[in-house]
Structure formats: structure tokens, C-alpha cells
Design a protein around this nucleic acid. Structure first.
Lengths: 251, 251
DNA sequence: TTAATAGTGTCTCTGAGACAGTATATA
DNA sequence: TATATACTGTCTCAGAGACACTATTAA
């Protein structure tokens, strides 16, 4: 018997709630969705699981996570961070003859680019689910998703990652809506503006949205040069970059 | 070729600065120390490295970290938490024919119980170093220790883990000294008291220190029943417990 | 009484949030 | 002009820190 090392990824996107049509009804916030993969072999055959697979012998952990993400969504992650390494002995059902340690990453992707249709990019075995309405999951993947959600909500509050759900440019209202969706509560526009501006997280592009029936809002973009609040073990500037970590980042 | 999965542990303890004798000279704060192990085979033969080793086939990750800690210090950890999984391709020197992914834990041990003498508990190949005066380290262990230090300092500020350096009972002054040592600055006793009391982290034992030449301070102990500020992926109450994680902790 | 540390009271400053008010586009 | 949203000003409140002050023991 042998210990297998796998890498899985929790991939988050935002999706408008009433997928029908009119955004005119009482402001329903977008909800968090994530793609799952149907297992085609035991254990847990037929059940849904996080996308992932064994680590390649010549592959960085983060690269494996990004590869999995691409295979599942045909996208590149806007944000990618290691979540945790899961390795307890009870992860597989009793009697299973394997020992798997999973290094799990979590990622944010641009919601506009996500193909949400059931006839998906890759196969019929990938489907997107609302985090509020998940199916029965294989292994301990329910616990993993719960923890990833906790980290996401935590980090949105003190860090500057919400823009990863959006495109290159966005309005403050759009960014605020992302925060509201993730945190599950409405935020005061005035205070939100001040808070974001104080972190230098975004810079105005000088352009404005056109075609509105009201005062056109400014467009902003993410400020790549500002220091991130958090840091990984290697102090990378942007966790989305799959750059190989330098051994001595600053000190 | 095969991917090897190893578990290493960064073990922190506090040690009085002027190991001489008199605690009478201007208040030198204790400093952080950690044990390293001298490598007895290539690569990096003869250099110092974090204690650790391969994961046992029937061993939880956390159990492996605790086992390593016991083998190195003959102690049980008062606090133990996963730090990060390190797995980049450049971790071993060029030309080395191995691929190691290390799941690294960090731990706090009771400083009073640590045997600091060079003739150590286990072998001559274990030695304690001040984190301000580390030798050349094998692999990427310098980066790992740097990150563990960052996490420790971060977590001491917002969580309630400092007591793990102390015994069962302690005075507020002792607890404050731990904070001061870790953070590297002095703290206002009055404000520190209020801050700690507001978190319900500690409860008075009703006893006092005896034999002082001044007003005897109250003795406190850690409040196990209070909710921890942080939570692991499984919401355990006390990370020191090597309990196997339950699949659905609260929700 | 003096010395030394334990422990309390209170002022100030800063940042978060509530919320009123002003600005600017289209219809 | 009405209206809808962008954006600004300002008040209040709570927590962090500075620091003066009181309490209690032994020498």
C-alpha cells in the first residue's frame, strides 16, 4: 500500500440569482456557485466531488491546481491560494484500500466568463452548484467546501480579492455587490467607498460607464502595485501568478 | 521516481535572554528558540534542518507532527497547527533525484519543560537556536521558519494561544511577557489586562503567587470552554488535541 | 515608610457605521 | 422637471492606547 498525493481545487464564481431576466425585482444578490465533477469509479461512484487528481511528478502543487481548474472550467484563475492539506485516516470509506492526502486549493474566477450551461465546456460530468444547494458529496469534500467558504468570507473582509470575480474594469457598485454577495448582507455605499479607497486597492481608469439612464459611474481597475494585506509563505505579490517562488522574497 | 510525502514541525519555545543569572538588569525579554536537527545524509549533509520525516502509512498528518515533536523534545505540544504544504519543484538541490512534498506544522511548547542544554534529550544531533541567530539551513527551511514566525506573531495578536508557552497557571504579567517577547515590543499592563479579560481567555484560579517581595499577583489559568477565535478546517476546540476530526463539527 | 509591582479610572484619538445631503446623468 | 443612482459630509459610538492614580504586599 502506498500514500497517494492528490491536489483538489474549490472554484468559486458568482451567478445572478434570478437567472430569468429582469434585474428589477427588489435586488436579489448574486450567489456563490462552484463546479463539481461526477465520479466515474469507486469509491463514491456516481457522486459529486471536487475537481482534482494526482499530483504530477514534475508539477508544482499550485500548477496542478491551476491545471485542474482549467480542465474543469476552461478558465485561468484570477485568484488561487492553498487552503489546507487534508490527510486524516478516515477520509476514504471503511475497507477502502487506499490512503490519499489531498492538498486543496481555492480559486476565484471571473463570473462573466463562466459557461454556466449544463452542456458544459468539457463533459456532462461537470456541473455547477449553488453553495446553498449542494448535493451529497464524496469523501470529506463537504467539510472542505465549508472551510473554503469560511476562508473566502473571512478574506474578503480584510483583504482585497473581491475584484477577482470581476473583469478588468468595474464600478464601485459592482465591487460592492460582490462583497455583499459573499458576506450575505448589504453594505453602505458611502462607507464601502471610503473603506476601499483607503486601502488603495483600486485606481480610477478615467472612463465611465455609458448608456445608463442616470449619472454614469466611474470605472476602476485593480491596483496591482499596492501591497497585499495578506501574504503566502513566500510573500508573492499576486497569488494568481503561477510564478515559481523565490527563496528570499524581501528580507 | 516517486513523490515522497514528509511532515516537518517548527517547534517554538521561549528562553530567557541573559541565560546568566540575575533578572535584575533592565528587563531583557525572553526570546524565541526552536530545535533543529543535523542532517546525517545527503543532500545538505551536516547542515541543520527542521525535525520531521516521512508520513507513516497509518498515521494522521497531525499525529506525525506530534510524534516528531516528541522525538525531538520529549514533550507534548501545547499548541499544534498546520502551517502550509510546501511542494515546489526546486526544493531539493539541482540534480537531486527526489521529489518531496512537506506538510509543515508549527507548535508551541511549555518553555519551562524544555531541556535547553546542548547535551539534549535524544542525541547530540538536536540543538536549540534563537530565531534571531539561525545557522544555514537545509532545503527551503529558512523560508518555512520565516513564515511560521509570521503566523505566530499574527496569531498571538488576534487569537489566544500565548498561554501555550506557559504552565497550567500563570500571572497576567507572565502572559504579558510572552506577548511582548513574541511581538517584540512592550505592552501597557493596564490595556493588556483589559484586552485579555474581554476575550474571556483566562479565568482566575483564586490563588496567588507567594513569596514575592511585593503585592502578590493573582494566578490565572486558560479558559478551555471559551470559543476560540480561529478555527481549523474542522472547527476543533483545541488544536493540541490529537483527536480525529469529526466530519460535521457544528452545522 | 519605602519600594515595587498589582490593579483601576479616565482621557483622547481613530476607524466603522448610520444616515442626511449634494451632484449629475437620462427621460 | 422628475428620478435614479453616484458621490460627499458629518454625527455617533466603540475599541485601542496613553497615562495618572490607587491597592497591597514585604523589607
Amino acid at each position: 500500500m502506498q500514500i497517494t498525493l492528490a491536489v483538489s481545487t474549490v472554484i468559486f464564481a458568482l451567478r445572478p440569482t434570478s437567472a430569468g431576466a429582469d434585474p428589477e425585482s427588489g435586488a436579489p444578490l448574486p450567489a456563490l456557485w462552484l463546479p463539481l465533477v461526477r465520479r466515474i469509479r469507486p469509491p463514491y461512484e456516481g457522486q459529486w466531488a471536487l475537481p482534482g487528481g494526482p499530483l504530477g511528478i514534475d508539477e508544482d502543487l499550485e500548477a496542478a491546481a491551476a491545471r485542474t481548474l482549467g480542465a474543469t472550467t476552461a478558465l485561468a484563475p484570477n485568484y488561487l491560494e492553498q487552503l489546507y492539506a487534508f490527510g486524516t485516516l478516515d477520509r476514504s470509506p471503511d475497507g477502502a484500500n487506499d490512503r490519499v492526502v489531498s492538498v486543496v486549493y481555492w480559486a476565484l474566477v471571473n463570473s462573466d466568463e463562466v459557461v454556466h450551461s449544463d452542456r458544459n465546456t468539457s463533459t456532462e460530468n461537470v456541473r455547477w452548484f449553488s453553495v446553498d444547494d449542494l448535493p451529497d458529496l464524496a469523501f470529506d469534500h463537504d467539510v472542505i467546501i465549508e472551510y473554503a467558504l469560511w476562508r473566502l468570507r473571512n478574506k474578503v473582509e480584510y483583504s482585497r480579492i473581491a475584484h477577482a470575480f470581476l473583469g478588468d474594469t468595474f464600478t464601485l457598485a459592482e465591487l460592492r455587490e460582490v462583497h455583499e454577495s459573499v458576506l450575505g448582507r448589504t453594505l453602505d455605499p458611502a462607507n464601502f467607498r471610503r473603506q476601499i479607497e483607503s486601502t488603495n486597492a483600486i485606481v480610477p481608469t478615467g472612463k465611465r460607464v455609458t448608456g445608463t439612464s442616470y449619472r454614469p459611474p466611474k470605472l476602476y481597475r485593480y491596483n496591482n502595485s499596492a501591497e497585499p494585506v495578506d501574504r503566502g509563505p513566500l510573500g508573492r505579490t499576486d497569488p494568481a501568478e503561477p510564478a515559481s517562488p523565490s527563496r528570499k522574497p524581501t528580507a
